[in-house]
C-alpha cells in the first residue's frame, strides 16, 4: 500500500510516520503532486497557525490539488481545520472540503484544550471497533462546529465536531497517532477504507 503524508512544512510529522510504522506500514513524506495522486491513502497533518499553514499550501499549489484527490484522505488536527470553509484563526479561508467553520474556544474554558476527552455519536467506518465515549488525545484552541458532516462529537465548552467526513475526505481533530490503542485502531480502520 502506498501511503503518503502531505509535506508542506507545517509541524511535526514524525509521530505519524512512527504510528504507521508500528502498524507495519511506511508512510512517505512528500510534496510531489504525482506521488500524492498515486498514493492509496493520503494523510494531511498540521500543527501551528492556520493562516501561515494555508499560505504554505498555496505556495506549493497543494491547496488546489488536495480537494481533487479521489482516494481516502485523512486530515489531522490543523489539517482537518484547513479542510473546512473558514477559520477564525488569522481569518483564514480554508479548502472548503467540509461545509463548516472553525471558531475559537472562549475564555470560559482553558485554551488550548489539552489532554484526553471522549468522542461520541460515532458515525463512520473510521470508528469501526471503537466504542462510544472512547478517549482520544487533543491539543487545540480552535474547533469545527457540529454540523451535518460530523462523524464524532466532543464536548469542551460546547459539543463540537471532533471528526468530519465528506465522500473520500476524513478529518479528525484529535491525534490518533498519540491516542494509545484507540488511536491505533482508527489508523488501522483508515488503512482499510
Amino acid at each position: 500500500m502506498k501511503l503518503s503524508i502531505v509535506n508542506y512544512g507545517a509541524g511535526n510529522i514524525k509521530s505519524i510516520q512512527f504510528a504507521f510504522q508500528r502498524l507495519g506500514h511506511k508512510a512517505v513524506l512528500t510534496d510531489k503532486p504525482e506521488e500524492i495522486i498515486n498514493s492509496d491513502k493520503v494523510l494531511f497533518p498540521g500543527v501551528g497557525e492556520a493562516s501561515s499553514a494555508m499560505l504554505k499550501l498555496k505556495q506549493s499549489g497543494l491547496d488546489v490539488l488536495i480537494p481533487t484527490l479521489k482516494q481516502p484522505v485523512l486530515g489531522i488536527c490543523l489539517g482537518m481545520q484547513l479542510m473546512c470553509k473558514h477559520s477564525e484563526e488569522g481569518d483564514t479561508a480554508g479548502l472548503g472540503i467540509f461545509d463548516v467553520n472553525v471558531k475559537r474556544f472562549s475564555n470560559k474554558v482553558k485554551v488550548p484544550q489539552m489532554g484526553w476527552n471522549t468522542i461520541s455519536n460515532l458515525k463512520s467506518e473510521l470508528f469501526k471497533d471503537i466504542k462510544e465515549k472512547e478517549y482520544m488525545y487533543l491539543v487545540h484552541s480552535y474547533y469545527a462546529e457540529a454540523c451535518a458532516e460530523s462523524i464524532a462529537i466532543t464536548d469542551y465548552e460546547l459539543p463540537y465536531a471532533s471528526a468530519l467526513e465528506n465522500d473520500n475526505f476524513f478529518g479528525v481533530q484529535f491525534h490518533p497517532e498519540k491516542s494509545s490503542k484507540a488511536g491505533e485502531q482508527l489508523l488501522k480502520n483508515f488503512l482499510k477504507l
Binding site: 470560559k108 474554558v109 484526553w116 471522549t118 464536548d155 469542551y156
Partner: peptide, 12 residues
C-alpha cells in the same frame, strides 16, 4: 472565574 463543566479528563 468559573470554568464550564466539560469531559476533558485530568492527566496523570
Amino acid at each position: 472565574m468559573a470554568k464550564s463543566d466539560n469531559m476533558l479528563t485530568k492527566r496523570i
